[in-house]
Amino acid sequence: MTAPVRERPMSPHLQVWRWHLTMFTSILHRATGVALYGGAVIVTAWALALGAGPDAYQGFMTLMASPLGRLILVGLTLSVFYHLANGIRHLFWDAGLGLSVTTSFRSGVMSMAFSVVATVIVWAIGLGSGAP
C-alpha cells in the first residue's frame, strides 16, 4: 500500500502573485542594492586609475564621460537615491509605522518620485557647473 500523494503548497512567486506597487518597490530595492555593488567597483577603479598616474586617470575619465559611462553614472545616482529613500521607508516600517496599504503605496510612490527628482537635480547642478 502506498501513501497518498499530497499536493505540495505553492510557494509565492511572480507567476502566482498579482503585481502591486510594494512588490515592485521591494524588487527595485534589491536591484538597486546590487547596482550599488557595481558602483563600488567603479569607485575602486577610479581610485586605482588615480593612483596609476595621469594617463590611466585620463583614460578612466574619458570612459566615464562617454555616453555609456554617463548612462551608468545616472543609473548609479538614481540607485543611490532610491535605495536611500526606500531604506528610510523600511526604517519606518521596522518601527511599526506606515504599514497600511494606503500609506505603503504612498510612501512607495514618494520614494520613486524623490529618487527621480533628486537625480535630476544632482545632474542639473553637475552639468550646469561645467563638469565634463
Score class of each variant (00 low, 15 high):
17 W>N: 11
17 W>V: 14
17 W>Q: 14
20 H>F: 08
21 L>E: 01
21 L>C: 03
22 T>H: 13
23 M>A: 14
25 T>R: 04
27 I>H: 09
28 L>T: 09
28 L>S: 09
28 L>D: 04
28 L>Q: 09
29 H>R: 09
29 H>I: 00
29 H>C: 02
30 R>E: 07
33 G>V: 04
35 A>N: 05
36 L>C: 07
36 L>S: 06
36 L>K: 08
36 L>V: 07
37 Y>V: 14
38 G>R: 07
38 G>W: 05
39 G>I: 03
39 G>A: 09
41 V>L: 12
42 I>S: 07
42 I>D: 04
43 V>S: 07
44 T>D: 01
45 A>K: 04
46 W>A: 09
46 W>Y: 14
46 W>L: 09
47 A>K: 05
49 A>K: 02
50 L>R: 12
52 A>C: 00
55 D>E: 11
56 A>R: 11
56 A>C: 04
56 A>Q: 09
57 Y>F: 14
60 F>C: 08
60 F>N: 07
62 T>F: 01
62 T>V: 06
63 L>Q: 13
65 A>K: 07
66 S>D: 08
67 P>N: 10
69 G>D: 04
69 G>T: 07
71 L>R: 10
72 I>Y: 03
73 L>A: 12
73 L>V: 06
73 L>M: 13
73 L>K: 04
74 V>P: 01
75 G>L: 03
76 L>K: 04
78 L>F: 11
79 S>C: 02
79 S>D: 01
81 F>P: 01
83 H>E: 01
85 A>I: 03
86 N>D: 15
88 I>M: 13
90 H>C: 00
91 L>A: 15
91 L>P: 01
92 F>G: 07
94 D>R: 14
94 D>Q: 13
95 A>D: 06
95 A>T: 02
95 A>W: 11
97 L>I: 15
97 L>K: 12
99 L>I: 10
100 S>A: 10
102 T>R: 15
103 T>G: 01
103 T>A: 14
104 S>R: 14
105 F>G: 10
106 R>A: 14
109 V>G: 12
112 M>W: 12
112 M>Y: 13
114 F>M: 05
115 S>H: 10
115 S>P: 06
116 V>G: 07
116 V>K: 08
117 V>L: 13
117 V>A: 13
